[in-house]
Amino acid sequence: MVRSNFEKDLEKLNQDILKMGSMVEEAIHKAVTSLVEQDFELADQVMKQDDKLDRYELKVDKKCIKLIALQQPVARDLRQIGMIAKIATDLERMGDLAYNIARITKELSGEEFIKPLIDIPRMAEIVQEMVREALESFVNLDAEQARKVGRRDDEVDELDDQIIRELLTYMMEDPTAIKQGNKLMFVSRYLERIGDHITNICEKVVYIVTAERVTF
C-alpha cells in the first residue's frame, strides 16, 4: 500500500524528535554539570552541540512541510505532523537555554560560589526527568503520562521561586555577591523556562492523542 512509505516517514520523524530530545537532555545535564564543576571544556561542548540541534529543527520542519504537501494527512496524522514541527521548535529553544547556562559557566570563569549549588542541580535533574518522560509520552501516544509530566512543572516553578528568594538574601547581605547572584538567578530562570517548554510539549502530546487543546 502507498501509505507504507508515509508510515515510514512518520516513524522517522518520531525518531528525529527522540534524537533531539536526548540531545537536549544531555545538553541540560552537561551545562549544569559544567556550572557546578566549573568545567569549561564541558561548557564548550554544550555550546558547540547547539548548532546541531538548530540544524535538526530545520530538518524536522522541512520533513513535516514535505509530508503535508505530498500526503495531505488528516486526523491524527495531521495532528501528529503539525505538532512534531512545533515540538522540534520547543526542543531547539530548550537547547538554546542549555547553551545560555553553559555560557554562564564561562562567564563566571572559575570564581568561588557565594553558596553551595544544591537546588540548581536538583532543578536540572527534575527537568531532565521531565524531558525523558515527555518524550516517552510522545512516542507511546500516552496522554495520561503527558498530563502527569505537564503538571510537574509546578515543582520546577517552586524551586525557581525558592532559588531566587535565597539568592536575593545573599545579594542584599553582600553587594559583591550581586554579580554572581544575578547570573545564578538567570540559570534558575533558564531551567524554569526549559520546564515551560516541556509543558508545551506535553500539551501537544495530549492534542495529538485526543484532539483536545489543554494548558497546564
Binding site: M1, V2, R3, P73, V74, A75, L78, A211
Partner: peptide, 16 residues
C-alpha cells in the same frame, strides 16, 4: 477530518 470519533473512519480517511 480533524477528530473522527470512530477508529474505522480514522483508518479510512488516513488511508490505513
Amino acid at each position: 477530518f480533524e477528530k473522527p470519533e470512530h477508529k474505522k473512519t480514522e483508518d479510512y480517511i488516513t488511508g490505513r
